[in-house]
Amino acid sequence: MRELILPSLIAGAAVAGFFGFQAGQTSAQVETAAFSQGATPANSNGDVSQSSNPVVIELFTSQGCSSCPPADMLASRLAKDSSLLVISRPVTYWDRLGWKDTLAREDNTRLQRSYAAKGQAGSGVYTPQMVINGGGGAVGSRESNVRSLVRLAKRIPGPEIRTERNKAGEWTITVNGQSEYMARVSLLALSSSETVQVGRGENGGRKLHYTNVVKDERTLGSWTGKSVSFTIPPENLNIFGADKYAVIVQRPNAGAIVGAQLLDI
């Protein structure tokens, strides 16, 4: 579903037009479009490298979006793959349709709009949308397109992220690697499973299920291409509603996600 100015157009031609555009794209076309954004899936010797980091899939979804439940279900299936880190980011802009999303965060809406402004393949402000490693996106229920982008992302090397906990419950996060760019290192607090009974709106009367919903996120510091470590005190891992925590390394201004790791809590 696209975000439109006129509510009367929400379920109409613009949505169908976008879905039709996506349906016309083959997996190869999606992958080629993502390459055109400047990704270089090879090391300095020209050999293709595999990243040891999980590929991050961010699902932008909403309880007020009737086309979102299939994408929410796909997110749940994808999350069972340990080579993927699926993150659900409910947005706020469909709240005006008669049901306020109980999991939505304005930060999620701002992030999606920042991704859209970069104009990469599959970009835009719509739900459901899956964005892969902060780059190319696809309709969140179109598994073939999503997996095509995931295959591409797995070929792009990233930094090594090590996590270690001491007896006092503090975690040390170490990011190793070399690069010529700066990246932000963030800690995300996630709820591994949420179930919501929707009372009104397009999904009124339905019980919806969500995976790895963002509850909180905070910046740990910056990585500038040299080894750096960050300490996370136990109190920062006690966010209400969260039972899972992840470290994300992402270039500034909604840039590419170059590394990620779950904490083994």
Rank of each mutant, 00 (worst) to 15 (best):
Pro41Tyr: 13
Gly199Thr: 10
Ile156Phe: 13
Gly241Ile: 05
Val150Met: 03
Ala39Lys: 06
Phe240Thr: 08
Thr26Trp: 08
Tyr115Arg: 04
Arg113Ile: 01
Lys207Tyr: 03
Ala246Asp: 09
Ile156Glu: 07
Gln129Val: 04
Asn53Cys: 06
Ser141Trp: 08
Glu58Ile: 04
Gly241Arg: 07
Ile232Tyr: 09
Ala28Cys: 05
Tyr93Asp: 05
Lys80Leu: 14
Ser123Lys: 03
Gly205Glu: 03
Gly38Phe: 10
Asn253Ser: 14
Asp107His: 01
Gly204Thr: 06
Thr195Asp: 14
Gly201Asp: 12
Asp95Gly: 08
Ala13Thr: 15
Arg105Val: 02
Leu263Lys: 00
Thr163Lys: 07
Leu208Gly: 05
Ser191Asn: 12
Gly24Gln: 10
Ala28Asp: 09
Tyr126Asp: 07
Phe19Val: 08
Thr61Leu: 07
Asp101Glu: 09
Glu58Cys: 05
Ser179Thr: 09
Gly134Ser: 07
Lys154Asn: 04
Ser141Ile: 08
Met73Tyr: 06
Ala14Asn: 06
Asp264Ser: 00
Phe240Met: 10
Trp171Gln: 02
Val258Thr: 08
Leu149Lys: 14
Gln261Cys: 04
Leu9Asn: 14
Asn133Pro: 10
Ser229Arg: 12
Gly98Pro: 15
Arg110Gln: 15
Asp216Phe: 01
Ala33Leu: 07
Ile232Phe: 03
Leu59Lys: 11
Asp72Ser: 06
Val247Asp: 06
Ser227Asp: 13
Asp47Pro: 04
Phe18Glu: 11
Val258Ala: 03
His209Asn: 02
Glu194Met: 09
Leu6Arg: 15
Val139Thr: 02
Gly124Ser: 07
Glu31Asp: 07
Leu263Met: 02
Ser44Ile: 13
Phe19Met: 00
Asp81Phe: 03
Ala75Phe: 00
Pro69Met: 10
Arg200Tyr: 13
Gly98Ile: 05
Gly134Cys: 02
Val150Asp: 12
Gly205Thr: 00
Leu152Gln: 10
Ile10Thr: 15
Ala71Lys: 00
Arg165Ala: 06
Ala117Lys: 11
Ile257Gly: 14
Ser49Tyr: 04
Thr195Cys: 04
Arg151Cys: 01
Ser8Leu: 01
Glu160Met: 10
Ser49Lys: 13
Ile5Glu: 15
Val150Asn: 12
Gly140Ala: 14
Leu149Val: 15
Lys154His: 04
Tyr115Thr: 04
Asn145Ala: 13
Val56Asn: 08
Gly136Tyr: 03
Lys118Asn: 13
Glu180Leu: 10
Gly38Trp: 12
